[in-house]
Design a protein around this nucleic acid. Sequence first.
DNA 1: GATTTTTATACGCGAATCGCGTACTATGGA
DNA 2: TCCATAGTACGCGATTCGCGTATAAAAATC
Lengths: 135, 135
Amino acid sequence: MILNRLTKLRKSNNWSLQETADLLGIAKSTYAGYESGHRRPSLEAIKLMADLFQTSTDYILGRVEDPKFQPAFEKTAIELADCLFVDLSVDGSTLSQEEIEYVIAFIRAKRELGQRKEQGKNSVGESSYLNEKTN
Amino acid sequence: MILNRLTKLRKSNNWSLQETADLLGIAKSTYAGYESGHRRPSLEAIKLMADLFQTSTDYILGRVEDPKFQPAFEKTAIELADCLFVDLSVDGSTLSQEEIEYVIAFIRAKRELGQRKEQGKNSVGESSYLNEKTN
DNA sequence: GATTTTTATACGCGAATCGCGTACTATGGA
DNA sequence: TCCATAGTACGCGATTCGCGTATAAAAATC
């Protein structure tokens, strides 16, 4: 069982622990225990969560990587806050959930400051300093 | 959890209860309890059986009908610097190439500062203290 | 047919742990 | 400041899990 996945699934729906627990019909502390690793869900709880999060028990238990039964790149645009299908990485190491949240906040702040670049456009200008790290 | 499925899976391999229990590394009476319904498997046991019988936990738990239905196993790790083929977005608007470069620089700077502020929060695996300075 | 081996089922008990209530801290808004 | 919400952690009662063991049926061996 992979702890981060539950948290990620819950946050992708913008649910609090209390909300999620209510939807599952269990106590908040119980569900919180699942996410923190203090408690492990029963078989029923696993199934309920798979239903609620619209994924599979195999994904929650860590047997498969893909939460959905569809290709990861079906969509061309991946919303960062909702990026369950892929792991993003920088310099080879995967971004943690917290880092992703920082990035989102960073982007928002940057846009807030009036740095409004064209949004739908892609200027494919390769930058040189990005490739300084070689594997 | 659907009782008959375990028995069918076991017999399709022509295994006895003892054989199956040995393969799973549990007591015969324990596994027999799963089939008879007297006992319910733990999360580990469910995963072990899914592996052994080459099916999914969802099938054993009765969430899907097809025992051979496995989700796509495409490991999707996107290196941000190389993700020209997919669009990332925040709040619905696509990140420009320049923004992505800023994000990469942001992440690198953040990691450079040493991310020891968080402890035991996200542990990918069992050891949470081991990977603070790996490569 | 009798004896031994294998298979399947069920019971009882000690140990493990599940789920809940509760308390605590941190954060943000009125 | 006060209050509400979010997240975390602890203790306890009750559930039940996993094992050994016993029993019965079936199969195999002689």
